[in-house]
């Protein structure tokens, strides 16, 4: 937020930035649909979902100073709830025999299912948040790690709903690229608006000094719950989209490794920087895919994860606040 700095004259206005983002997304989708291979489209879809996840985590953690690692838990929940609504009706009794009879005739379109998945994840976050958000920074991190394990274990053992470790296959590939791009645009714009409104400033005040913020009338607990629930809702939505890109869902599709990667994206981009999270998610997603052939040719499997960890450590040493800190690069913030 460098309003009034010399660079601000060369920054895009918010409207220009919005138009540019929309054009880039629409153009990218059009090009990929016309000329891209299935591989490219899937890569683009996964990249955009990573962008949404990183942006929502920078809202939850970056705006309010929480340190939640719980995104994968909410993604898993959102995914299974959505699948219960979108899975081909004819195969439900075989794949998910324990599903209540109500679901047996249902085969809803993805947006409806994903929305319900998001609401379920947000509701779960609201319930968990009441107790968990009393915890200070690293205790919250540990508690949300526990949440990932709990959800994963539940999914593994609720065999009649999830097919356990064998996973659900044959999920409709209904997450069209344009739909994901549209959702990405909405998530970025929504989080941007939140950050630059009074509520956003109040959240940042809580992050900077909770007691000082409370002493001039900011309800810190409520804002933290809001950020946690909103972030979980977006995570639930993304979790619902993902299996509809790759057609498979297993209990450990979204695990600890993903939690680490997401936190790495947020820390590298700058905690609280929305565009920082976007750039970090793009670099991470495309970078790891770019490194894959190197891994294979050298036989150094796991190399990408090492690179991510090293980048994270280097950023923490040289730029502890991330590449952009709280700032938004390139765009005016008034």
């Amino acid at each position: 937020m460098t309003a009034g700095s010399p660079a601000s004259s060369r920054r895009l206005s918010q409207l220009q930035a919005l138009v540019l983002l929309a054009v880039l997304l629409a153009g990218g989708v059009a090009l990929l649909e016309a000329f891209g291979s299935g591989y490219h489209r899937t890569l683009a879809a996964l990249t955009l979902i990573n962008v949404m996840l990183a942006v929502s985590l920078t809202m939850t953690n970056g705006f309010t100073g929480l340190f939640s690692l719980g995104h994968p838990a909410f993604m898993t929940l959102g995914a299974y709830v959505a699948i219960a609504f979108t899975y081909p009706a004819g195969r439900k009794s075989f794949a998910m025999p324990d599903l209540p009879a109500f679901f047996s005739g249902i085969e809803w379109p993805l947006p409806a299912g994903a929305l319900i998945g998001a609401i379920a994840a947000a509701a779960a976050a609201r319930i968990v948040g009441i107790s968990v958000l009393r915890l200070k920074v690293h205790y919250l991190a540990v508690a949300t790690l526990g949440l990932i394990i709990i959800v994963e274990t539940l999914a593994l053992n609720l065999d009649g709903l999830t097919r356990g470790g064998r996973g659900l296959t044959g999920i409709p590939r209904s997450a069209e690229l344009w739909l994901i791009a549209l959702c990405t645009l909405l998530v970025i714009v929504g989080c941007w608006r939140l950050k630059h409104a009074s509520v956003g400033r109040a959240m940042l005040a809580v992050r900077e000094n909770e007691m000082a913020a409370r002493c001039f009338g900011i309800d810190a607990v409520r804002l933290k719950v809001t950020a946690f629930v909103l972030g979980a809702g977006i995570a639930g939505f993304c979790g619902a989209l993902l299996p509809h890109v790759v057609a498979v869902m297993t209990p450990n599709s979204f695990g600890l490794m993903l939690a680490f990667n997401l936190v790495a994206m947020v820390v590298v981009g700058g905690q609280g920087s929305i565009l920082g999270a976007v750039f970090a998610a793009l670099a991470f997603s495309l970078g790891t895919e770019g490194l894959r052939p190197v891994e294979e040719s050298l036989g150094l499997y796991g190399l990408t994860q090492v690179v991510v960890a090293v980048v994270l450590i280097l950023v923490l040493i040289w730029r502890p606040k991330g590449l952009f800190g709280l700032d938004e690069p390139l765009v005016e913030t008034r």
């Binding site: 939140l194 009074s198 509520v199 109040a202 909103l230």
Partner: peptide
């Protein structure tokens, strides 16, 4: 930020 407690709009409005 000091004026938020009294005059801030809700999250949904934001």
């Amino acid at each position: 930020a000091g004026a938020h407690g009294r005059h801030g709009a809700s999250t949904l409005a934001a």
